[in-house]
Amino acid sequence: MIDGIIHCLVVLLLPPLLIGIITKTKAAFAGRVGAPLLQPYYDILKLLRKGSVFSTTTTWLFRAGPLVTLAAILTASLLVPLGRHPALISFDGDLILFAYLFGLARFFTASAALDTGSSFEGMGAAREVTFSCLAEPTLFVALITLARISGSLRLSTILTYPTPALWRATGASMLLLVAALFIVLLAENCRIPFDDPTTHLELTMIHEVMVLDHSGPAFGLILYGAALKLLVLGALFTAIALPVSTGSDLADWGLFLASMAALAVAIGVVESVMARLRLVRIPQLLVGATILSAFAMLLVLR
């Protein structure tokens, strides 16, 4: 019960902090002081109190897009175990629903982008759907591999099964899985090297350009949704990459928060030391990730 409440609180409150940590890390690398850690919270709260501007071209779908997207990601967040605690809802095959809820979110984000009639947003939408399409098989191959290791089709079991002992036993394949999932994590959340969320040139962006015309509360919801997506996929990643458990519930929650913060720092470091890939190389990297996960599966089979 308490775990459930903490789960909801984490889902509702933590996401913007991750973005804050990433920006702070990048600022540190650039030798700046950077915005305060809580800046994303201020941004979202401010946006919720601002008026909106709508394009004359847009229809109801433009307004519905951010809402459906956020609803889908929120629903997905109930399925993923945070830390070492089982998710609020768990059933056989929930991982399929999990992946498809992101598909639903993508459909609406991309459609809302096309609703503005701007070619920049069309470009962003096209890139988003294409790259996610290539990232999806990786996720499934990785989840099948983990399902085979853990003998279950529930995310809650699959993701709480890995332990340090398992890492020692099947290290190579776990390492490959972690690498593949990290690539998927960066691609799905539109981070460098796939997309640069802070560039000032619309032509080169993916996610940010899709939401260019949103404003006011809707944009606040979009920012929160993007951060939440990072949290949800990040939780999936850390469950495999840092499978440490202390045995005590509260300590586990603390460990979870620490691991998420570490992940945010890691993403910040990647963003500071890497450049964005050329667009034509992105599919190559995503296919490479699929091959990595397939390789992991092959090793588990042996």
Binding site: P283, Q284, V287, G288, I291, A294, F295, L298, R302
Partner: peptide, 17 residues
């Protein structure tokens, strides 16, 4: 192209097993 060769390489690796 690079993508097809990469894919072929993956297939070859699987076949090697």
């Amino acid at each position: 192209g690079y993508l097809p060769t990469l894919f072929l390489g993956a297939v070859c690796t699987a076949l090697a097993f």
